[in-house]
Structure formats: C-alpha cells, structure tokens
Design a protein around this nucleic acid. Structure first.
Lengths: 88, 88
DNA sequence: CGCATATATCCTATTTTGGGTTATCCTAAG
DNA sequence: CTTAGGATAACCCAAAATAGGATATATGCG
C-alpha cells in the first residue's frame, strides 16, 4: 500500500471529483457552501493537499447529486483506463 | 458535512471493513502484511483511530479480494439500513 | 497455570489539517 | 492597455492527527 498521494490512482481520483463538480456547473465556493466548509477546503482536496475519507467523499457526492456508488464505479473505470494507457 | 468520526456512517463503515476481513478468515496481522503496513495500522482504522481515504480503502478491498465498487454498494445498503432503524 | 495468538494501547517525533486572508490567474469590458 | 470581478491557489502556523515499534490486554487451549 502506497503512502504517497502522488500516484496515478490519486490523480484520477482528484480529477474525477473536480469533473463531477464542474459538470454540475458549480464553483468551489458554491460547493463549499453546501458542504458548510470554506472554499479552501474544496481547493485543497481537488489539488491533493488534503485527503478525503470515504464518508467525506460520500457527502460531497451527495451535494453534487450523485450516489457514492455511481461515483466509485466511474472511478474504477477511470483507474483501469489510466492503467491500460500506461506503458510498461 | 460532519467533522466528527463518531457518526453512524463511520461506525457502519468501520464495521463493514472489519467484517470483510473476518469473512475472509484473516487476522489483522495477516492483512497488514499483505498491505505492507504494521498490525497497529489495521487495528487503528478498524477502531476509528485512523482515517482511510478512498484509495487506501481500495487497496484494502483488493487485498481482501473484493472490488471497491462492491464494497461501496454494500456500505450504502448498510448505511441506509442503519438510518431506517434510527428513531426520530 | 503457562503459553500462544489476536487485538488494543502507548508514546512522541513527525506530518497533516483548518480556515481566514491574501495572492494569482483569467476573461471580458471600457 | 487598464480595470474590474470572479474563480482558484497559496499562505501561515497553532492545533490536531498519524506512524509504527514496543508493550499491554484479552481470549482460548491443554
């Protein structure tokens, strides 16, 4: 188990979260408000400066109108795709 | 978004992870070894003394032979169930 | 009881986080 | 080009969380 947050998995994860937000047409500030957190919080986790646990991701997904299970499924697909693309 | 890890969601999450391990008949030490982490790591996250991010949970699920998406789906079901049961 | 196995707890140096504030970066308008 | 406004990133640092080896506790067995 990697201890670094600079692996492709983490990169894909962050991109997925940001994509979900922008798809909904929300700014970091707008999302942060529905979450009851400061804008810097959203910025930090999208950049990878702050880790999110499963329950937090679930809350974010809910704020963005997507069930956690749906998000995770897409995430798995994206991670697989990113691995396929990687040269060995 | 709650900042506490002492909500029913977190409790259900922890129980689910422990259940997944015991179902596979593994001890904390055995799992920790496949993860390349100390036994105290497994103990801590099962107790809630240590948070796990999505990618870490994914690695644990893989070590336990269960896709993350499957785990998450069960988790959602369990959380819903725990909410249904809660008195208002 | 004595030993073995599983899990929890200790300890503290190191790492991460919180969040208001400020800086940077775009984009569009004048 | 200059100014304005909005979105996002970076600052700062006290406070909180983590790492992991060592140790304690708990449980089961002969």
């Amino acid at each position: 188990m990697s201890k670094s947050i600079f692996t492709s998995e983490y990169a894909v994860f962050r991109d997925s979260l940001r994509e979900l937000r922008t798809e909904k047409g929300l700014t970091q500030s707008q999302l942060s408000e529905t979450l009851g957190m400061p804008q810097s919080f959203v910025s930090k986790y999208e950049i990878g400066e702050r880790r999110l646990d499963m329950i937090e991701v679930r809350a974010i997904c809910q704020s963005l109108g997507t069930p956690l299970s749906v998000f995770v499924k897409k995430l798995e697909t994206s991670i697989s795709a990113s691995k396929k693309g990687a040269r060995t």
